[in-house]
Amino acid sequence: MTNLYGFIFQFIQLIMTLVLSPLLLGWINQCRYWLQNRQGPGVFQPYRQLVKLFCKDAVLADNASPLFRMTPYFLFACMCLAGTIVPVLATNLPFASVADVIVLVGIFALARVFLALAAMDIGTGFGNLGARREMMIGFLAEPALLMVLFTPAFISHSTALTTIVDTLSHTRFIIYPSMAFAMASYLMVLLAENSRIPVDNPSTHLELTMIHEAMLLEYSARHLALVEWASSIKLYDYFVIGFALFVPWGIASGNHLSSMLLAFLALFIKLAFAGFGLAIVETLSAKMRIFRVPEFLGTAFMLAVLGTLTHFLLEA
């Protein structure tokens, strides 16, 4: 493959990450509104929100340190990078070899640590509370996520996502029962990591239940815009990682324009369906108490471990 094409597609993938992520969020919200018999502001609402925030003047607390101001940019960069590493359109893009799935988890952890530190920087009660809860969810979700990723890594004898996708989609069709466990666990981790409903409510500002929002309370204007954008990219990243692991069909292995278009179409359909599915899950479930979250994520962790065990029993 020519390197130039690779880099062009890589760049397209980055742009797609940036552009599609607010759209995905808008779509999920719109689906939720429909399911709740409400009209909804349309799928483009997140873009309007971002533009509005960018235009405003930033207000910073007196004792905000440079760390606090740096974090939004940092968060944004981490999430974008994760989006370029995951094979979304094609498997042989040049940037994919920079990081494997373990590094991907590391990137998410890095972003989380920075956000938590920034939340504690001002020293208000809510920021502290949010940071503590976020780190609590993090230390439970991160191992679960890694164990989910271990199952395909054992199957394909590789931790590189491109090789995983190649093994799962481009060779003969084989059903991997262990992936059923991985998928159940991944869904739980996705809900927790992206502060979706059973764990956290993305649209609440009710003090007792806030996790993610509590950390952002001190951010405003462009900083808030970047953080919000970064969290929508994070959701998108989790979606495309999920696609790469569980429904990898459609991701191009070559560099032809036609297969790329096909991959793009497949991605669009997958995003639409998965977004709708997430909306249904969120509509059907109630937010759980914070004390139940360790249980929820502990279950996810156990299921992921069970997945690797099943792999050894049934597929080895």
């Binding site: 059923a180 466990f181 249980e295 279950t299 299921l303 049934l314 597929e315």
Partner: peptide
């Protein structure tokens, strides 16, 4: 190479175990 029916059976077995675990946690 396991035939398709065998793979399906394995998948169902995995789901069976998954349900057993879900019952444990419910």
């Amino acid at each position: 190479m396991i035939p398709l029916s065998g793979q399906l059976l394995n998948l169902l077995a995995a789901v069976f175990l998954l349900i057993a675990f879900a019952m444990l946690a419910q």
